[in-house]
Simulated assay, not measured.
Amino acid sequence: MPTVRAPLNPKISMWFFLAFCMRFFRERAGLSLTQCGEIIGLARSSVSNMEAGRRRPQDDQMRKLDNAYGTGVLFQVLLWFARMAHDPDWGRQIDRYEEEAVSIKTYHGQVIPLAFQTDDYTWAYVRASKFKDLDASMARRTAKKRAYWEKGDSLLTWTVLDEAVLMRPVGGKEVMKRQLEHLLELADLPYVSIRIVPFSSGEYMGVDGAMQIIGLEDRDVGYSGAMNGGRLIETPGEVRELSITFDRIGVKAASEEASREIIRQYLERCT
């Protein structure tokens, strides 16, 4: 007897509503997952993942579904709303994108990004957080860091930091000393770029907050940080604007070698 797959709850998010509609219209048309895949150019497993909310569809695929089902621009509009709406699952979705990434560009003006943190630096921020289970939070962050660097040179990393990040003695003098040493070690890796925006650069666009641009094989997605969370950005136009902002911040940053020297100067203050 074939396994009957329960439908997603379309009330959870717009992404789940889109996945729900994909399955509803496919079954109403009497199509199998394989037949639907032939319409949008994907394997059966990929269609199944989309209908389960595990994979995000793209514009051309939704356009093909609208043509096949005679739904005008329904699926294209649903995709637009899903991208623009708040996604309660954005954290796990970013993790999935990072697992698939071939490049990651990050800017932060307040804290060293998680992937570049020593465990002691991470623990200092975990202790200062509002989480109740500190050990569980630390374990999640440590696992995420480990997974990031396990990709080796298959993941190209560009990171831009404000000089203020180096100035803040997170965890105390010894913890910060080791953290700065760790930054210099990572900066020597051929697939890692670390650049610092010095105070002497004056005003720049970085005051808007942290950002991340995740390069996938077929497209880029973005993340814009904010208090109590952030927003996953998948609309091509918005991602392009985020990339331009990252580049404009980069114009204000020192060169890689000059940035190493800035880090060394702060390291000397810790010795």
Rank of each mutant, 00 (worst) to 15 (best):
V126N: 01
T159Y: 00
L189P: 03
I263M: 02
R219Q: 11
R264N: 06
A43H: 12
G230T: 06
S45D: 10
M14N: 06
V73N: 10
R5Y: 05
R140H: 12
W123G: 02
Q117H: 03
I194H: 00
A136E: 13
I12L: 15
M14G: 05
I112M: 00
P7V: 14
E268K: 02
A254W: 00
R231Q: 08
Y148V: 00
A43K: 12
L183C: 09
P113M: 04
P10T: 12
W80I: 10
G222N: 06
A254P: 01
A147G: 15
G30Y: 02
G206H: 08
L189F: 01
L184Q: 07
S137P: 02
T34N: 10
T245C: 11
W15D: 02
M176Y: 02
L18V: 07
A101E: 04
V221G: 07
P57H: 05
M167F: 01
K177L: 08
T122F: 01
E256H: 04
E174F: 05
Y266L: 08
D208P: 04
V192Y: 01
V77W: 02
A101V: 01
V73E: 12
G37S: 11
I262E: 02
D220N: 15
L65K: 03
Q179Y: 03
Y69V: 05
T245L: 13
V239F: 08
F81W: 06
D95Y: 08
I196P: 01
V73Q: 14
D119Q: 11
Q179T: 07
P236Q: 02
D60Y: 09
C36S: 15
G53D: 11
R146E: 13
V4L: 10
M167E: 14
K144D: 08
R178C: 06
F24I: 11
M50G: 09
A187M: 12
I12K: 01
R178W: 01
R248G: 03
L74N: 06
R178M: 11
E241R: 01
W15I: 10
G229Q: 08
R63D: 06
M84I: 09
L184E: 07
L79P: 09
T71E: 11
E261M: 13
R178D: 09
F17N: 08
H108E: 09
R63A: 15
N67H: 14
A68Q: 15
L267K: 05
T106Y: 00
Q76K: 11
L232D: 04
S137R: 05
V221P: 05
M138I: 07
E256K: 13
K145T: 09
L242G: 03
R195E: 00
D153K: 11
A139D: 10
A43S: 15
N9T: 15
Y69E: 09
K173P: 02
L183H: 01
H108Y: 04
V111N: 12
S13C: 10
N67E: 15
R26P: 09
M211Y: 01
G230M: 08
W15L: 14
G229E: 08
T34L: 12
N67C: 15
V73P: 04
R5G: 06
